[in-house]
């Protein structure tokens, strides 16, 4: 979509790649320059959460708490109470993985302006294995009142999200990935917390993706086009508050919806979409993501394949979903959900 100003050579092998977390690191430094109240807290992962640059430019506003994730977010809560704008960062498996109750009580119920950045989310963390591959964070965070949940699709968007998070008041969670991810958006691509965006228009099926899966969805849509299937691709970069209008409008048009995420489909983006469709625009739904299991060690690309999340995998799944749907529709017009709703 020209209005979305996506990267022009997106579908080429030469597409530029960068870890999503790098954008967070840049955004944090810029946020620190713009606002002297921005502070950063880290739990012994300064380099890999990309807080290093901030810690070097603003050593007096950087708090190292050691390997203590409960203390990480509760200290941040106390700082927010004194009008600081704290960003608390660790691996998502530990924060919000380990400190959920502290986030619930001292940040959400207490309504403090704390920004939690969970790095290394998803299976593409790779060789570290299941313990470090956080797949449940979207579900854990979106269930909390007052919390907003943001999942940027690339490093450029992560930078914008970080800056907007710093400027807006309230508890927020930012989901970040470790691996290099193709850069999908440009500086001119619109981004606003709370909005989903149509990145590619189509009429046969809606692909609602978040995070690193936006790129795979776009790539899959290009393949589907070869097969005569017109797929609409939506980047759902804010899981909460959920942009119901954009999803409902797309489902109304296409009648069939696929969700794509690098995390548990139970409780994740898939759940947010299913809840919305169920209430406002019932439609057959295919949920692509991690299906109620843990990850394992392997190279990131191997793991994406192992869990069926690469563009060819999802293209295949979408084709059979649509085939089943079309078949069901033509044979039993009244029972479109009988096969399409599996998984």
């Amino acid at each position: 979509m020209s209005s979305m100003h996506l990267t022009p050579n997106l579908y080429k092998r030469s597409a530029e790649q960068e870890p999503i977390r790098n954008g967070f690191g840049r955004g944090l430094v810029e946020a620190g320059r713009r606002d002297g109240q921005v502070v950063a807290l880290c739990a012994d992962l300064t380099g890999s959460t990309r807080m290093k640059a901030f810690s070097q430019e603003f050593p007096d506003r950087y708090i190292e708490v050691g390997v203590a994730e409960q203390n990480l977010v509760t200290t941040a809560s106390g700082m927010a109470h004194m009008d600081k704008v704290p960003f608390a960062s660790s691996y998502a498996a530990f924060s919000p993985g380990r400190n959920w109750e502290q986030i619930r009580t001292t940040i959400c119920l207490n309504d403090q302006n704390v920004k939690i950045a969970g790095s290394h989310a998803g299976i593409s963390v790779g060789p570290d294995g299941a313990t470090h591959q956080m797949l449940e964070d979207i579900a854990l965070m979106r269930v909390l009142p007052n919390m907003r949940v943001i999942v940027p699709c690339d490093s450029v968007q992560a930078e914008k999200a970080t800056l907007e998070m710093a400027a807006e008041i309230g508890p927020m969670y930012l989901r970040l990935a470790r691996e290099k991810t193709p850069i999908v958006t440009s500086d001119d691509t619109p981004f606003e917390i709370g909005k989903s965006y149509v990145y590619r228009k189509g009429g046969d099926v809606s692909l609602v993706a978040t995070g690193s899966m936006v790129y795979h969805a776009l790539k899959s849509a290009a393949s589907l086009k070869q097969a005569g299937i017109s797929a609409e691709v939506i980047n759902c970069a804010t899981i909460k508050p959920f942009d119901r209008e954009t999803i409902v409008a797309s489902a109304q048009k296409t009648g069939r919806v696929v969700t794509l995420e690098e995390g548990q489909i139970n409780g994740g983006l898939a759940a947010a979409v299913a809840e919305t469709l169920g209430e406002s625009q019932p439609a057959p739904l295919l949920r692509i993501g991690i299906e109620d299991q843990f990850g394992e060690s392997g190279q990131p690309d191997e793991l994406m394949k192992r869990f069926g999340l690469t563009a060819p995998d999802i293209t295949q799944k979408i084709k059979s979903f649509l085939g089943a749907e079309t078949g069901a529709k033509s044979k039993n017009p009244g029972k479109t959900k009988s096969k399409g709703g599996h998984k």
Partner: peptide, 24 residues
Amino acid sequence: ETTSGPLGSGLSQATGMALSLKMD
């Protein structure tokens, strides 16, 4: 000044507040 009940989180918040005072 805080919401509390689940135990063990107050001192962290107080520490965050005292850190802020020190910074300022």
